[in-house]
Lab assay of single mutants.
Amino acid sequence: HNGKLCKLKGIAPLQLGKCNITGWLLGNPECDSLLPARSWSYIVETPNSENGACYPGDLIDYEELREQLSSVSSLERFEIFPKESSWPNHTFNGVTVSCSHRGKSSFYRNLLWLTKKGDSYPKLTNSYVNNKGKEVLVLWGVHHPSSSDEQQSLYSNGNAYVSVASSNYNRRFTPEIAARPKVRDQHGRMNYYWTLLEPGDTIIFEATGNLIAPWYAFALSRGFESGIITSNASMHECNTKCQTPQGAINSNLPFQNIHPVTIGECPKYVRSTKLRMVTGLRNIPSIQYRGLFGAIAGFIEGGWTGMIDGWYGYHHQNEQGSGYAADQKSTQNAINGITNKVNSVIEKMNTQFTAVGKEFNNLEKRMENLNKKVDDGFLDIWTYNAELLVLLENERTLDFHDLNVKNLYEKVKSQLKNNAKEIGNGCFEFYHKCDNECMESVRNGTYDYPKYSEESKLNREKIDGVKLESMGVYQILAIYSTVASSLVLLVSLGAISFWMCSNGSLQCRICI
């Protein structure tokens, strides 16, 4: 991952900044910058967002509201009850120091605090018919004063009620008058409520006091790749198909172990950190130390980045220098085999997901714990399936590479015959000098055995068991695999060879 928040398929997220979902939807004055928000790819909250409900109280069923919003990608904020005409018999300019803005008392931008007009609070009834052709999110509140005197001074009615009804919602609220500790300079409380109004449905408000009335509502448009994440990451000019709280993932790998919460087309989250597919040879310690064997393909974004291909070729060293050249036929066979294998694994496992966190309130801790156990169970199954699949494929890959290298080895052996000696570690020792032209003939299969047989015969008789390297004779190393990324691999195959001279070296080696 890149540690950044990015656009998702070209669409920017909605960053709530210092506000949370509650503050944004109710219209906390400190969240005025969010009022123009219309569309987004996903919503970003920060872990310690401080601006929620400015007048103390709870947004009821907040967790369910977050779940609903996680599939919303755009909205239209509109005046559901026009301020100047909807409440002619009531005062609608209630403000509070708890919702101060720029040093002055204020109130929510989407709600109206209705109080008595003169000395009376006549029963009010108002309704709205949803003609938007889509779901409408309606929010309101109920004020709970701290004393009967406060109730009387604001609403005149000691036994007030609030009723809200639609086809799918029907509740009646009565204020709970009680002494409470002071929070944000208030002994009173406000509880906030919401409902989704279906197209064509009607919502009716009736009250004799204590109503925090809707002013603006939201017509919602769903987008199934949307979601809500909690993150401290910063926004950058970048684009992605998959976003996590820790950063964007741009990967076609089937798995990731970065974060379980994802938005967009994302690899499946697994616990494993070692889900690797081999593309090189079986481990040979001396070669492995030099980083030549054991190439791997990573299938977990965050564990290993991208696929690494092994390729086969020849390396030689003689009086004229040293050089490398790919054996294109065996390399292409290996590439085709690995590509098919990788595609097979991805096809089997690479279903892209959006995974969002589930919200539970403080009273639902047991449910949250149960949900976590269920999620953990599914996660263990996914991890096991992934590891088992790759384990089985790896064994076949190792066998496949062994065969490829063996074929190259036999190709060289059949040409050199007794003009060189096998020394048991995949290397041959020449009994004759071999210049670049000679080396090329070994690589392309045109090695002239009779041409060098007499010199080889004489050297075999002279050496008589002495280690060949100390006599200045020449080696050919018969097994060799270097490691390159897919891009470098293609470039390498396009070149005939490249040279690395070893000044004054008397050794001649050709490596497979």
Rank of each mutant, 00 (worst) to 15 (best):
S231Y: 04
N232W: 10
A233Y: 06
A233C: 08
T244C: 07
P245I: 03
N257L: 06
I258V: 15
T262Y: 15
P267I: 00
K268M: 04
Y269I: 09
T273D: 03
M277Y: 03
V278D: 03
L281N: 05
R282H: 08
R282E: 11
N283C: 03
Q288P: 00
Y289H: 13
R290G: 00
G291I: 01
G298M: 07
W304I: 08
G306P: 02
W311F: 14
Y314F: 15
H315G: 03
Q317L: 12
N318A: 04
E319A: 14
Q320I: 03
Q320F: 14
S322E: 15
G323C: 08
Y324G: 08
A325W: 03
D327E: 08
Q328N: 00
K329D: 10
T331E: 05
N333D: 14
S344Y: 01
V345T: 02
V345Q: 04
I346L: 13
Q352G: 15
A355W: 14
G357P: 11
G357I: 08
N362A: 13
L363V: 11
E364V: 10
E364R: 13
R366C: 07
K373F: 10
G377E: 10
G377Y: 09
D380Y: 07
I381E: 07
I381W: 09
N385K: 09
E387N: 11
L392M: 15
E393H: 07
E395H: 11
T397N: 06
K406A: 03
K411H: 05
K411W: 09
V412Q: 06
L416F: 10
K417S: 10
K421E: 13
E422F: 07
G426A: 03
C427D: 02
Y431E: 05
C434P: 04
C438V: 05
M439C: 01
E440L: 06
S441H: 13
V442W: 04
D448F: 08
P450F: 12
K451Y: 10
K451P: 02
E455V: 10
S456A: 15
K457D: 10
L458I: 07
D464M: 10
S470N: 08
G472I: 08
Q475S: 12
L477V: 07
L477I: 11
I479E: 11
T482G: 15
L487C: 06
V488N: 07
V488M: 10
L490C: 05
S492D: 15
G494S: 06
G504A: 13
S505F: 07
L506R: 01
L506H: 03
C511N: 15
C511I: 14
C511S: 04
